[in-house]
Simulated assay, not measured.
Amino acid sequence: MINAVGRDIPEEILEMTGKEVFHGNNYFDGYVFQKASPSTKCVINSNGSKVIESIHEALVKCEIRDGMTLGFHHHFRDGDYIVNMVMKEVHEMGIKDITICASSLGKAHDPLVKYIEDGTITNTQSSGVRGKIGEAISNGKLKGLAIMRSHGGRVRAIETGEVHLDISFIGAPTCDDYGNCRGIGGKSNCGVLSYSMVDGDYADKVVAITDCLVPFPNF
């Protein structure tokens, strides 16, 4: 189907995503949508701490299963290994058909290529895919779709429910044992955690990963 700027968009992509072609800048003016909301589990008898020992335990508690969408952010840029650590554990648990919805993916995430090749990761959604991940996608190794969005487009897609995050992982320079995160104060300061705010608000389950636990409240 031809869009408003003359590009021919494959019909099968429109069917797979449920999207319309681009109709012009003002096409959705006045469009009304209902914001999505996460499922929330009440915790009545808390032991006063949410700290657990490992990513594996976190995935078990979050009931990881095939076909889920996992959210990540990229505040640590080329120093980010959170995605690699999580996906290594997901792979070792035998989980398949995962969609990664990251604010961005770069050279630090080259180790994910093997998980793309074996079907652990079958779809990606990101503002950019650089390094070996970009090469793998360009060479047709990704079994599903690679969807590219701006940072604001990712936020809007999550808010509207177009993207549903089953579990999001927030790498934080500091965190207290109730899960309150800050982008400063630890060994890996990144300034702010704004890219992951929508993950914290809309994901069904949120896992904070830190190398610096601080006393409550972490503000």
Score class of each variant (00 low, 15 high):
Ile133Asn: 00
Ala203Met: 07
Glu117Ala: 06
Arg149Asp: 10
Met148Ala: 11
Pro173Ile: 10
Ile64Pro: 00
Cys42Ser: 14
Tyr178Ala: 09
Val5Pro: 00
Arg7Trp: 10
Lys50Glu: 09
Ser39Ala: 11
Gln34Trp: 08
Ala102Glu: 03
Ala108Asn: 07
Lys19Glu: 13
Asn25Leu: 15
Cys62Met: 12
Phe28Leu: 14
Leu145Gln: 06
Gly161Trp: 10
Pro111Lys: 07
Tyr202Gln: 09
Val90Leu: 10
Ser37Asp: 11
Ile184Leu: 11
Val214Arg: 01
His56Lys: 15
Phe33Gly: 02
Ala172Asn: 01
Gly24Gln: 09
Thr99Gln: 00
Ser138Lys: 15
Ala146Arg: 07
Val214Glu: 04
Ala203Thr: 02
Phe169Tyr: 09
Val83Asn: 01
Val60Trp: 13
Arg149Thr: 09
Met85Ile: 08
Leu165Lys: 05
Val21Asp: 05
Pro111Met: 05
Asp78Arg: 14
Ile95Phe: 05
Glu20Gln: 12
Leu59Cys: 02
Leu165Gln: 05
Gly179Trp: 01
Gly67Asp: 14
Ala208Ser: 14
Ile44Cys: 06
Ile184Glu: 14
Gly179Asp: 03
Ala58Tyr: 05
Arg77Leu: 14
Met93Arg: 12
Leu213Tyr: 11
Ile133Pro: 02
Phe219Trp: 10
Phe22Gln: 03
Val192Tyr: 08
Ile209Leu: 07
Glu89Asn: 05
Ser168Trp: 00
Gly71Asn: 03
Ser54Asn: 09
Ala102Ser: 15
Thr160Ile: 12
Arg154Met: 15
Arg156Glu: 15
Ala172Gly: 00
Asn180Thr: 12
Cys175Ala: 08
Thr122Val: 03
Leu112Gly: 01
Arg77Asn: 07
Tyr202Lys: 14
Cys190Pro: 01
Val113Thr: 04
Ala4Lys: 11
Gly67Glu: 14
Arg65Phe: 07
Asn84Glu: 13
Val198Glu: 03
Gly18Tyr: 05
Val60Leu: 14
Ser103Val: 04
Lys114Thr: 07
Asp166Ile: 01
Gly152Trp: 06
Asn47Gly: 12
Ser37Arg: 14
Glu53Pro: 01
Asn123Ile: 08
Ala208Asp: 06
Asn180Ser: 09
Ile9Tyr: 02
Ser194Glu: 09
Gly152Ile: 05
Val83Met: 10
Glu92Val: 02
Tyr195Lys: 10
Asp199Leu: 06
Gly183Ile: 04
Val32Tyr: 10
Glu117Thr: 06
